[in-house]
Structure formats: structure tokens, C-alpha cells
């Protein structure tokens, strides 16, 4: 008998796994409507009036308020609602357990889901931005590098929140319920239903440091070209750290 060598699955296995997760996401048509469709709808409904009012640096209400909100909705729905619903389904139905008796680690599924979620987010953000640019005369951010950095940081923060949902949700249904509740709570406190200035002070402050509000604020500053209040990126980084710790401690494979 030849000796038994532990051989980790190579790039071909990773690529196949990512393709499989992508097919799962694309074939879950209902799951695409909220993250891609809802932000586009909000954009189209508010763009025509918002595109005329200049705020600062030639940037309009569309650039400084609507686009940051739309981007944040895409990132938050995919990260907080969709990602954990797949992971909870895989755990509940024993797929993670099944993979744990192959040379593939179930962690491969997690990574592949994050990669596919990132691609889906880029598609959603890209679609919204293309429509805003071509149909409503939106502008690129006054500080593009800062905007890109915030988008990447915000995506990480949203996935970290999603990992917490996946770690604590006992069933796929509860993952969707907890994810949606978290999305609307973060959203309500972060400007989803109107500006945070209308909230009581304590809630407005809280909303600004939770991932949704922090993302909207930081992106808004990046678009306007004004200084980004460090509290927002720091809050997002803290969300990444908290999500990582909580999911490492509480995530169950079966």
C-alpha cells in the first residue's frame, strides 16, 4: 500500500466550488430580486429630482445621498440576508457535514460563498451605478480611492454581520428572519427610511456607528469630496472584528 498523504484540494477544486456556489446563487432567482432590484427601484424613483440639486463640488443629491444609500442596500442585503441564508441551509441539510468527510474542508464553501457574494455585490453596485451615470447624469466620487476603500471595507463588515447571523441562526428560515430584521434595524437607524437627523439623538448616534449608517455616511463624504469622519471607517473595521470573533466562536458545522 502506498503511504497516505494529506493532499489539499487544489485551484481546480476551488474554481469548481466557486462555480457551483455561483450557480446556486443565480438559480435562487427570488434571492436576486431584493439586492439587485430594490436598489435599482429606489434609484430610479428618486434620481430625477435628486439629480438637479447641487450640494457641493458639483455633486448633486443623487451623488451624495441616493447613490451611497443604494450601494449600501446592495451590500447589506447580500451580506446580511443572502449569505447567511445559504450557509444556514447548507448546515441544516447536512451539506457541510457531508463535505467534512471529503478532502474538501467545509470552510471552502464559506470562502466560495463570500467570493460569489462579492461578485454579486459588484454586479448589483455596478448595475446601479451604470444606470445612475447613463440615465441620470450622476457623477463619479470626488474622492474615488476613498470611495473604493469604503466599499471594500463595508462589504467586509456586511459579510461579518452575515457570519454572525449564520452562526446564531438555528434554521434556514430563522437565518432569513434574523437577517431581514438586522437589515431593517440597521437600515432604519442608518438612513434607509429618511435621514438620521430625524431620529432621537441617541439612536442617530448609534445608527451612525452601525455598519449601514457608517457606510452611507462614509460613502457620502467620499462622493462629496469632504473629509471622512474616522468614526465611520473605524466602526466598519470594528464590525469586521466582532463578526470574525463571534462567528469563529459560535459557528457550527452541523
Amino acid at each position: 500500500m502506498t503511504p497516505i498523504v494529506a493532499r489539499r484540494p487544489g485551484p481546480r477544486a476551488w474554481l469548481t466550488m466557486i462555480q457551483c456556489e455561483a450557480k446556486m446563487v443565480v438559480r435562487d432567482t427570488a434571492g436576486l430580486i431584493v439586492p439587485i432590484g430594490l436598489p435599482l427601484l429606489i434609484l430610479v424613483m428618486s434620481a430625477s429630482t435628486a439629480a438637479d440639486q447641487v450640494v457641493v463640488n458639483g455633486r448633486t443629491v443623487l451623488d451624495v445621498h441616493v447613490i451611497p444609500l443604494v450601494f449600501t442596500i446592495v451590500m447589506a442585503t447580500i451580506g446580511i440576508v443572502n449569505l447567511p441564508s445559504f450557509l444556514a441551509l447548507y448546515r441544516r441539510t447536512g451539506i457541510l457535514r457531508r463535505l467534512s468527510v471529503t478532502p474538501a474542508s467545509p470552510a471552502m464553501v464559506l470562502v466560495a460563498q463570500v467570493v460569489v457574494s462579492a461578485l454579486q455585490t459588484l454586479a448589483g453596485v455596478g448595475a446601479a451605478f451604470t444606470v445612475a451615470l447613463s440615465a441620470f447624469g450622476a457623477h463619479v466620487p470626488a474622492r474615488p480611492a476613498a470611495a473604493l476603500g469604503i466599499v471594500l471595507l463595508a462589504m467586509s463588515a456586511m459579510y461579518a454581520m452575515g457570519m454572525i447571523v449564520a452562526a446564531v441562526a438555528p434554521t434556514p428560515n430563522s437565518a432569513v428572519a434574523i437577517g431581514l430584521a438586522a437589515f431593517f434595524a440597521f437600515g432604519a437607524l442608518g438612513g434607509l427610511f429618511g435621514g438620521r437627523e430625524n431620529l432621537p439623538d441617541a439612536l442617530a448616534t448609534l445608527g451612525g456607528v452601525l455598519p449601514f449608517g457608517a457606510t452611507v455616511e462614509a460613502l457620502s463624504h467620499a462622493w462629496a469630496g469632504s473629509t471622512i469622519d474616522p468614526v465611520h471607517p473605524i466602526s466598519l473595521a470594528a464590525a469586521v472584528a466582532v463578526g470574525a470573533v463571534v462567528s469563529v466562536v459560535f459557528f457550527r458545522w452541523d
Binding site: M24, R98, V101
Partner: peptide, 15 residues
Amino acid sequence: QVMGVQLQQAYLHNA
């Protein structure tokens, strides 16, 4: 690498 397992609960990626 060298063990194949069929579990009683045989669910896989549904789509």
C-alpha cells in the same frame, strides 16, 4: 483522501 462515506441523510446542493 482514502475514505468514502455515505451518510444516512443524503442531502446535497439542491439547485
